[in-house]
């Protein structure tokens, strides 16, 4: 399952998507939990009883602002979260 957490508002589309099929058998030792400086990720048991990473509820409506430190206006080449997730389950839409 692709779980998209985030929103789209007048200013743009801000989604972090987690590919739960890659996530269930995490080979990165749940590295996302500690990689994100904002501790934005948590492990949940989803509706199909899989243990997967998710973006915490408190961040889902403010991602554009919450991720700002990782995304300087001058450009960036990698993000801590998607770099730490070696299975490649975490993607950002913006």
């Amino acid at each position: 399952m692709i779980a998209n957490y985030g929103y789209k508002d007048g200013s743009g589309e801000y989604y972090i998507s987690i590919d739960t099929d890659k996530c269930t058998s995490c080979s990165a030792g749940r590295a996302c939990l500690t990689a994100c400086p904002k501790e934005m990720f948590e492990i949940i048991t989803d509706d199909y009883d899989d243990e997967v990473a998710a973006v915490k509820q408190s961040f889902r409506r403010s991602l554009a602002f919450d991720c700002s430190d990782c995304k300087p206006a001058g450009g960036y080449t990698s993000l801590p979260c998607s770099t730490a997730c070696t299975p490649g389950a975490i993607k950002h839409s913006w």
Binding site: S62, A64, F65, D66, S68, D69, P72, A73, G74
Partner: peptide, 12 residues
């Protein structure tokens, strides 16, 4: 202010 500040931090 906190939303604006997030944008300012992106430019430093």
């Amino acid at each position: 202010a906190s939303r604006v500040c997030a944008m300012v931090r992106r430019v430093g």
